[in-house]
Amino acid sequence: MFKKAAVLVASCGALLAGCGTDLQTENQEIVSNLIEAGFRADDIMIVDDSVYVGLDAQVSLTASREMLQHDKQTQEQFRTTNLVGTGVTKICVVPTSQFNSYPNLSAGLDLAIDNYNSQGLRLTFARGSASDCTATISAKTTTGAGGSSGFPTGGKPYGTINIGTGTDSYGADVCEHVITHEIGHTIGFRHSDYYDRSISCGGAASNEGASNVGAILIPGTPSTAKVGGSIMNSCFRASETGEWSTSDKTALKALYP
Rank of each mutant, 00 (worst) to 15 (best):
G85M: 08
G85F: 07
C12D: 05
A57M: 12
L109H: 00
S60L: 01
F39W: 15
L68W: 05
E29L: 10
A57R: 14
Q24G: 09
T21H: 09
L105F: 03
A10H: 11
I46R: 03
L105I: 03
G54I: 00
G108P: 04
I30Q: 00
V94K: 08
N115I: 04
A14C: 09
M45Y: 06
V59I: 14
S11D: 08
V93S: 05
G85N: 12
V9D: 13
I91T: 04
S60A: 02
I35M: 11
D49F: 09
D48H: 04
I44A: 08
G38H: 04
G18F: 05
G85L: 07
E26S: 12
V51K: 02
C92K: 01
Y102D: 04
I44S: 09
S106W: 01
L111Y: 11
T81D: 12
Y102R: 01
T81K: 13
V47R: 07
L68D: 10
D110T: 12
V31Y: 09
Q75H: 09
R65E: 14
S50G: 08
C12E: 08
Q24D: 15
C19M: 11
D49A: 11
Q24S: 13
R65C: 07
G85R: 10
E36D: 11
R79S: 15
E36H: 10
K90C: 00
N82S: 11
N82K: 11
P103H: 06
D48K: 12
C12K: 13
L109V: 03
I44E: 10
E29I: 06
E36G: 06
L15A: 09
K72N: 11
V59D: 00
T96K: 05
D71H: 14
V59H: 00
D42A: 07
D110E: 10
N100D: 15
L55D: 15
T80K: 04
L109K: 01
Y102N: 02
R40C: 07
T62R: 14
V53I: 15
D43E: 13
C92A: 13
C12N: 08
N104F: 07
L16M: 09
S97P: 00
G20Q: 07
I30Y: 00
A10K: 10
V47M: 01
G13D: 11
S101N: 09
G18T: 06
Y102S: 01
Q58T: 02
D22N: 13
V53R: 10
V9R: 15
Y52F: 15
T21P: 12
V53S: 05
D110Q: 10
N33G: 05
G54K: 10
D43K: 07
Q69M: 09
L15T: 12
